[in-house]
Amino acid sequence: MLPPGTDLEPKFAAPHLSSYLQDFWGRCPKLVGKYGSSDGVVLLFGLMHDVIFFYMSLEPSTGEVGLFFVLHGICTTADISAKKQWSMRGMRPLQPALTVPLTLGFVLGTSWWLFMPPTVRAPGKETDDLFLLLKGVAET
């Protein structure tokens, strides 16, 4: 998809290898900091994406996209807290063979549930182009 010779920063190169939500969202350093997700940043991301979807579709926001980011912020914070509790109790972390599919399943499931419907519902050439791009990415 990227032009030949284009390099990605390592933090964006392999989100499909994320073992936990913190790993997935940690690839976006402004969202997840040292102590977890910042509520203000999560709300800002959600609001920003709701506005983007409004400008793409010229339809009032249903709040699904904003809810996606709020849900992921809450779950990322819970993920970080659980890992800290396991560590304090001397428990080993879960194996990546289990956590990678669970993390990707959660991200893809909530994306399909909350992020994609406004994209599919939105009329217009811009959203048709976006849907074709997403379909092309999914097929590769």
Rank of each mutant, 00 (worst) to 15 (best):
M1E: 09
L2M: 08
L2C: 07
L2T: 01
P3V: 09
P4G: 08
P4E: 11
G5M: 07
D7N: 13
L8K: 07
L8T: 08
L8H: 06
L8P: 06
E9A: 15
K11L: 15
F12L: 14
A13K: 10
A14C: 11
A14M: 10
A14E: 14
H16M: 09
H16G: 10
H16W: 14
L17A: 14
S19T: 12
L21H: 00
R27H: 13
K30C: 12
V32G: 01
K34C: 11
Y35G: 09
G36L: 05
G36H: 04
S37C: 15
S37D: 06
D39M: 10
V41E: 10
V41D: 05
V42Y: 02
L43Q: 11
L43V: 10
I52F: 07
F54L: 15
M56T: 09
M56Q: 10
S57Q: 10
L58H: 14
E59S: 13
E59G: 06
V65K: 00
G66C: 06
F69V: 02
H72R: 05
G73V: 04
I74D: 09
I74P: 00
T77N: 15
D79T: 02
D79K: 00
K83S: 12
W86M: 15
S87Q: 13
G90D: 08
M91L: 15
P93W: 08
P93R: 04
L94T: 04
L94D: 11
Q95L: 13
Q95I: 09
A97D: 14
L98D: 12
L98F: 12
L98K: 04
L98G: 03
P101I: 07
L102P: 03
T103F: 00
G105P: 00
V107D: 00
V107W: 02
L108F: 03
L108A: 04
T110V: 05
T110F: 06
T110A: 02
W112M: 01
W112T: 00
W113C: 00
P117D: 07
R121E: 04
P123N: 04
P123W: 01
G124T: 07
K125D: 09
K125A: 09
D128H: 08
D129E: 15
L132I: 05
L134M: 04
K135M: 08
K135R: 10
K135T: 06
G136P: 01
G136L: 00
G136W: 05
A138D: 02
E139V: 02
E139S: 05
